[in-house]
């Protein structure tokens, strides 16, 4: 349980730094990989389709990013989903609790939940405790 792989797709370097620190504090066994936009993220997945070990268990996906935002990523992901040989939970990350964003997120089946920044240590712990989830999850905001 503790040796989960995280993938954070977010262009905010500071947030990447904060998440790295937070996750390290939760458990040193949890690994985390960063991509600064959706395009880079989807490229990574595409390159590692068959290699379950390199694929993450949890993807944290920011909405606002240059070149390819979160929604576009999810679109691309959909076409890859059938080829991915691993159970993955994808959580949408956003700095706002915009109701229209939440409604839009719930429509997407590939998503497991919705997280509003900031994400605390406890937030990561809760997330892990729910993994793998087949129910809609969102943190408290």
């Amino acid at each position: 349980m503790n040796n989960l792989h995280f993938l954070l797709i977010d262009d905010d370097e500071i947030f990447q730094f904060i998440m790295k620190n937070t996750i390290a504090e939760v458990s040193p066994n949890i690994t985390i990989k960063f991509f600064s936009d959706g395009e880079k993220g989807i490229d990574f997945l595409r390159q590692n389709l068959g290699e379950a070990n390199d694929l993450p268990d949890i993807i944290l996906l920011d909405v606002n990013m240059p070149f390819m935002d979160g929604w576009e990523f999810l679109n691309e992901y959909k076409s890859l989903q059938s080829q991915i040989k691993k159970e993955m939970d994808i959580y949408l990350l956003t700095s706002s609790n915009n109701p229209s964003d939440i409604a839009k997120a719930k429509e997407i089946s590939a998503l497991s939940g919705y997280l509003v920044k900031p994400i605390s240590k406890q937030g990561i712990k809760n997330l892990i405790s729910h993994f793998p989830t087949n129910q809609w999850y969102h943190n408290e905001f």
Partner: peptide
């Protein structure tokens, strides 16, 4: 509104996270 919500909230939460760190 969106700018404030997305673009301003993100760095401010970062600040608070960094401060607590």
């Amino acid at each position: 509104n969106n700018i404030v919500a997305h673009n301003l909230r993100a760095p401010t939460t970062s600040v608070s996270a960094l401060v607590s760190m």
